[in-house]
Nucleic acid binder design. Structure first.
Length: 353
DNA sequence: CAAGCGTGGTC
DNA sequence: TGACCAAGCTT
């Protein structure tokens, strides 16, 4: 195969292009393995432009492994608010604590050891090892599979997990042992800017090595099977204010959807009946004066919430698992986007009365 | 392994 | 407007 035979020329063309054209990103100004780790976790399934401000704030607030290890989980979650996939940061802090306590605050330099840290999978392990330490390890993400499937005309379905090892083996063969950091980042940069789903082949620095370009098959690669369409769940959210002007919230479980985030009382798949009766049944609470707030859809990765929200008043006590919070306290709690939207609607209504 | 897990951008 | 996407990991 042409690319394999001209490996040196390919590596050189790719890395020269990367060093010339790479975007100036905050995490490319350091090789601090902790900062690389933070950036890689944030970048999982998340766009660069979204990550940048979160990254800047996060490392300012938690500048070292020790700072993050010792931080309160609620403060850590607050820094992640709005970024999504909230278990990432819970796992990150757990992994950082492992490094501090078990590795004398030195992030391990072997795939075997680093992969055992919470939240560090095959990609993140290879990314930290190669970018922070210059170790020639594969870091195969969606970009890499797309780029390699085109370069080498690999037509295995990239949606099937067991096929990823094909790409990991390809990368281990092609990777530049002298500069694995630039090589891995170059492949990803190429996938993010040139070898996109709709590729810009005329701008590609390695098109002469590309099997798909030669055969005009760049639009049909990679092969990726479709996923199932998601369900829509009707959700009723009730914002409950007591006579002291405080708000009723609870923290979601530590695992699962919106892990550890705070929310107003909610009912999924609720029956069509009055809010007062529903709150009595579900939470044993007496509420009055229901006022409609917002009606909107919130789309998650695998399901949609069709959210109806109301504002009510109560003179009751907080039910099991709930607490009343002042307005300032509610602001400080980590909340996911649908809760934030409803909270903003409440504030609007307060302002106009 | 398949399914669960957020959010915002793009075409 | 809806499908698809974006530097994946866990169970």
């Amino acid at each position: 195969m042409q690319l394999i035979e001209q490996k040196r020329e390919f590596q050189s063309a790719l890395i020269q292009w990367y060093l010339r054209e790479k975007r100036d990103l905050p995490w490319r100004r350091t090789t601090n393995p902790y900062y690389i780790w933070v950036s890689e976790v944030m970048l999982q399934q998340t766009r660069v432009d979204t990550v940048i401000p979160y990254y800047e704030r996060f490392i300012k607030k938690f500048p070292t492994l020790a700072h993050l290890a010792e931080a309160d989980e609620a403060d850590v979650l607050k820094m992640w608010e709005g970024l999504g996939y909230y278990s990432r940061v819970r796992n990150l802090q757990a992994g950082v604590k492992e490094v501090v306590t078990q590795y004398n605050s030195q992030i391990p330099k072997t795939r075997k050891e680093i992969s055992q840290l919470k939240g560090v999978g095959p990609y993140t392990a290879g990314a930290v090892l190669s970018i922070a330490y210059g170790i020639p390890e594969h870091a195969v993400d969606g970009n890499v599979m797309r780029v390699m499937s085109r370069l080498l005309l690999i037509d295995e379905d990239i949606a099937i997990p067991r096929n990823k090892k094909i790409f990991e083996e390809v990368v281990m063969h092609l990777i530049d042992k002298e500069d694995p950091s630039s090589f891995n980042q170059a492949v990803m940069e190429l996938g993010a800017t040139i070898c996109t789903p709709n590729p810009k082949c005329l701008l590609c620095p390695v098109r002469e090595f590309c099997g798909a370009f030669h055969e005009g098959r760049q639009q049909e690669l990679p092969i990726k099977s479709k996923k199932v369409k998601m369900k829509t769940i009707p959700v009723l959210m009730v914002v409950i204010r007591n006579l002291d002007g405080k708000w009723l919230l609870r923290q979601r479980p530590a695992t699962g959807l919106l892990a550890n985030m705070w929310e107003f009382p909610l009912v999924e798949n609720y029956p069509s009946q009055a809010i007062e009766q529903l709150m009595q049944q579900q939470y044993k609470m007496q509420v009055e004066q229901p006022t409609p707030l917002l009606h909107f859809k919130h789309i998650f990765s695998h399901l949609t919430w069709d959210i109806t929200s109301h504002l009510v008043v109560t003179d009751d006590v907080a039910p099991e698992g709930f607490q009343f919070f002042s307005t300032e306290e509610v602001e400080a709690l980590p909340k996911a986007v649908p809760v934030i939207k409803i909270w903003q609607a409440v504030n609007e209504k307060e302002k106009n009365s």
